[in-house]
Design a protein around this nucleic acid. Structure first.
Lengths: 125, 125
DNA sequence: TATTTAATGCAACAATGTTGCAAAAGTAAT
DNA sequence: ATTACTTTTGCAACATTGTTGCATTAAATA
């Protein structure tokens, strides 16, 4: 049986994401950690945090992958909320309360969703 | 004044995308063209087709960028429809008729949207 | 403290996308 | 058809992002 271990890198990254109001990219995390660990380690830690359900992954409209903590989905772990990407301050935030509705044609089976809007956030508009 | 020119590469790529029922990635286009032109040229042609409004860009849930022709938006050119990404056959299609609705908090100004669902398409489910 | 094995660092690699510049090829005028 | 002008292309080189193998390091348990 393989059991997870608490390492410095994992703890730091987890805290960084948890305390951030915006979603963070791999490179942003790397800058924040200031050489605490290797680039590869960050990828592997993020992978583990995803598996363990502490964070979720967001693909921005420009293709950049960002990571955000799981707030609203502690129990059920569903991510059908909208993300907002600000074109001015470049921040990506989870709008946890905004869940879009739509009517899908028959025979489509949905297992994952990625909704991202871009424009100006309240701070920038 | 700079005016666009009709080149072999542009014509081929435009036709390829227009005649495809699914969105195509850069690498898929490259394979189809079989060395007709350079990798870089494809990037630049796609850039021009985007500017000219013949195609639109879709960022898939896995971060892969795909391009699809503009069908429904010939006049108004809006892309608020949903995209569906099949996990089995890997196809990405535009569900032109499916437009999601949602209530955004005040002071957000939306200029672009990217909605992608993934799961199983009718052919694969 | 010793043992076990998860986690890390390093090097090397692959995929994707960008940029500068000289050469090639459209387009329009002669 | 030829010329002149400028867009477009190909090539090389580079940047970024993400992955993999393997030896080493360091948690967690006994």
């Amino acid at each position: 049986m393989k059991s997870a271990r608490n390492t410095t890198a994992k703890t730091e990254i987890q805290e960084l994401i948890a305390s951030s109001s915006v979603a963070l990219s791999h490179s942003e995390i790397q800058k924040s950690l200031e050489g605490l660990c290797d680039r590869v380690t960050i990828y592997r830690v993020l992978e583990r945090l995803l598996e363990e359900g502490f964070i979720h992954k967001i693909v921005n409209v420009d293709g950049v992958v960002k990571y955000a903590g799981c707030h609203s989905c502690s129990a059920k772990h569903s991510h059908n909320h909208i993300h907002f990407s600000c074109q001015k301050c470049k921040s990506v935030t989870c709008l946890d309360d905004v869940e879009p509705s739509f009517k899908l044609p028959k025979n489509y089976k949905v297992s994952e969703m990625n909704f991202t809007l871009s424009g100006l956030c309240p701070q920038c508009s």
